[in-house]
Write a protein that binds this DNA or RNA. Sequence first.
DNA 1: GTCTAAATGTCGGCC
DNA 2: GGCCGACGTTTAGAC
Lengths: 288, 288
Amino acid sequence: MHGRAAAIHRSAQESNGRVVFLRRLAREGVSVETLHRPAHRDALVALEGAFDRGDMVVVFGRCTVEYDGRASSSLGPGDRLLLLKPDGSALVHTDEKRTPVNWQPPGSEHRASVRDGRLRVQSRRTTPEEVLDVRFERVDQLSAFSVAERAELALTGSEEDLRNRILDDPALVEEGFEPLETERETMAGPVDVFGRDGEGRAVVVELKRRRVGPGAVRQLQGYVDAVGRETGDETVRGVLVAPSVTDRAAALLDERGFGFVALGPDEGENGDESEDVDPDRERDSADD
Amino acid sequence: MHGRAAAIHRSAQESNGRVVFLRRLAREGVSVETLHRPAHRDALVALEGAFDRGDMVVVFGRCTVEYDGRASSSLGPGDRLLLLKPDGSALVHTDEKRTPVNWQPPGSEHRASVRDGRLRVQSRRTTPEEVLDVRFERVDQLSAFSVAERAELALTGSEEDLRNRILDDPALVEEGFEPLETERETMAGPVDVFGRDGEGRAVVVELKRRRVGPGAVRQLQGYVDAVGRETGDETVRGVLVAPSVTDRAAALLDERGFGFVALGPDEGENGDESEDVDPDRERDSADD
DNA sequence: GTCTAAATGTCGGCC
DNA sequence: GGCCGACGTTTAGAC
C-alpha cells in the first residue's frame, strides 16, 4: 500500500529468478503482507517497510543467534521463528518452551541488513547495553501484520485481590485485626499489610497468592525484624496469609512464632478457618 | 504435499467464494504452509494437519481470549498473534511487551474447532488444571512451520560461572577462605557455598550474578540463621558476593554484620578489591 | 532513571 | 510429581 508496498513489489520483480509471493490485504484496518522464500534483499525491503509502518513482523527460517549484554549467548544454526514488535521487543522462538531462546526487551531498536549473503536483524538497546544478532541463512517466510485493535486484559486472582479481600474483612486474618497501612515502607522493603491486633500489638502481614516455601517466611521475617528495629517494639507479630505452605515453610513459621492463615485470592478458597491456625494443621496430616 | 496438504487444497476450493492462498514448500527438511484469510473450516483443517505433523503454528487475526487456571483473565476483541508449539506451549502476543498477554505452558493439549462462526483454539493442561480459549472472529493468516534443525544455546555469565570462579580461586571471597560444600542443605534452603575462614569459623556465601537488593540479604540471613541453629554454632559468618548492592541492601548487610565482596560472573568485572570490602565503599560515594 | 517485589512468572535440578 | 532457587527473568509502581 502506498510508496512502501510499491517498493516491495518492485524489489520482488527484481529478485533474479526466485519465486516471491506478496500479498497485502487491507480490510477493517488490518493488513497482512507475506513473502515466501524471499531473496534476502526482498526480505530486507519488506522488513524496513514493516518497521516504518509499525507492523508486527514474523520471520521464519534457518538462522544463528548471538546475544551480548547482561550475559552472553550463542546459538548455532537451526530453524526458528523471530517475532519483532513495533515497541522494540524481539523474540526468538524454537519449537519448544514458553520462553524465547533469545530476546530483546521493549525499547530496543531493530535494524535489518544483508551481509555475507545473509539477512541480518540486529536489535540494540542501552541501559544496559545489549545487542541481539539474528543471521538468516535462509528465510522461509516473512510476514508483516498491522495491529489495529487492542483491548485491555482483565485478570483476577492476584495478590491485590487477596489484599482487598482482607481489607474488606480483616477478621479473615484474625478476630480483632485492624489494618492500618498497606505497602508500609521499612528498611527491608515494603510490608504488604501493617496493622494491630485486638490487644494493640503491631502485626506485619505478608500475602501470597499461592502456596509458599521458605522464601515467603524469610520475607516476613525480614519485615518483622525491620519494623521491630525501626519502632523499638520487640513484640511485633508476623502473619503469613497464603493458600498453603510447604513443610519447610511451616517449620520456619513455627520456629519464628509467626501465624499462618490459609486463604487465597479467590472466593472459593479456604476462607473459613481463619482463627490463627497452626501451620501444622494446614498440611496433609497423617491422621485425617 | 501428501494426504494432508491435499485435504487442505480441497477444503480451500470448497470455501465458498473466499480467496484462500496456500503454499507448501519442502526443501532441506523445512516446510511452510500458509493460508491467507481462510474460512474457519479451512483454518481448522490446516490446524489439525499442523498438530498431526508437529509443526509450529502462527495464527494472526481478530480474537478474544479467556483464561482460567492459577488465575483467571478475559481479553476483549483485538488483533493478536497466536503461536502454538508442538510441545504444547501456546502464546498469545499483542504488538507490545516481551511477555505474551496470555499463554499456556508446555505439556498442554491444543484442540481446534469451529463454533458459532468462529475458529476456536483451546489449550488445556492439568496439575494445575488450566484452560486457554482463543476465539477468532477473523483469521488474517495461518502458517504452519516444520522445524527440522535445532542447536543448543550456550550461555555465559550465570551464577554458576560466578561460583566456578570462586571455587577456582577462593581468595576472591577472602584470604584463607576454604570452600567445603556447595548447595549445602539447610532448613531455610540450600546454601550456595559453605566453607570456613582462615580462623576456622563457618562461612555462608550467597552468590548473585547481578546487583542485589534487600532480598539477597534476607536470603543470606535465612541461611546463616539456619546453619547457626542446626549446628549450634553462634559464630557463623555470612558473605554476599555480587557485582554491587543497593543502598538498602548495604545497610542491611552492615546491620547484620555480613561481609560483601564485589565480584561478578565475568572476567572483566570488579574482581580486584576482594579484601572484605565494606559495602559502603562500593556504592556511589558523595565524595569521589 | 533506580529500587522493590509480584508473577498464570518459567525453568532446571534434586528428591 | 512437589520443592526450591535462578533467571539475560519481565513488569508494574513508587520515588
